[in-house]
Design a protein around this nucleic acid. Structure first.
Lengths: 113, 113
DNA sequence: TGGTTAATTAACTAGTTGGTGAACTATAGG
DNA sequence: CCTATAGTTCACCAACTAGTTAATTAACCA
């Protein structure tokens, strides 16, 4: 379970961690600021942040005794890519996208000629 | 961890389960067919399938002594929606969209004056 | 120097996960 | 009825997860 996709999905599987990411989407925050909405001890939040950091979903700076956290969305791009490959199984409009992609591919093939 | 999004992400966090979904994207398969590529006991696969089923990612039919599995992508749509809300943090072309939205908002503010 | 605030680390616990082998259920077919 | 095939359930185990409280580290401030 050490590949990037696995640790990303594992990190996202916890609602507290998703809420932390949602908060960070509004901008940097300190650990105490992130902990504030939760009825949970600070060490528990610290652990969640470590999970997010090891999954590459956040980075942490340093400002005096504060350790501001910042969203790092790159792993989400990979997760989105993975999920997108299944879009045709739920999105009926995929037919149009699929046709569009195939026509693009056709154009590339023509250029290669 | 019992909400839909959590159980979906938790199910996707295991590479064996993601591989099973990839196989099912090619069409229905029995448990033994799904187990074949893995160096893992049948009960282990059975457990993975149960996780996928409880997350709503697969459904199971009945055909004599076979229990054919089928991909059910609806939960993936929800997961995709969630991830998409973060697209602007990795997709640079979102900057243009974001700027566009902000300029629209500015126009609205001006109208309110 | 000593006190306060911010955050992490340590030690522990309860519950979950991912795997095993052995036993069991269910259906098909001679 | 017996046997083979398909799959699940059971009992167990090791590793991991998510939380706790208490102790520790780090930086600021008076």
């Amino acid at each position: 379970m050490s590949d990037q996709l696995s640790s990303t999905f594992a990190a996202l599987a916890d609602p507290t961690r998703r809420a932390i990411l949602a908060r960070l989407a509004e901008g940097e925050a300190t650990v105490n600021e992130l902990a504030e909405p939760f009825e949970m001890s600070l060490p528990a939040i610290s652990k969640h942040l470590k999970v997010l950091e090891r999954a590459g979903l956040i980075s942490r700076g340093r400002n005096a005794q504060w350790r501001p956290c910042q969203l790092e969305a790159a792993p989400l791009a990979e997760a989105a890519d993975w999920v997108e490959t299944y879009r045709r199984f739920w999105d009926t409009s995929f037919d149009r996208l699929d046709a569009h992609l195939r026509s693009l591919q056709d154009q590339n093939i023509q250029r290669e000629d």
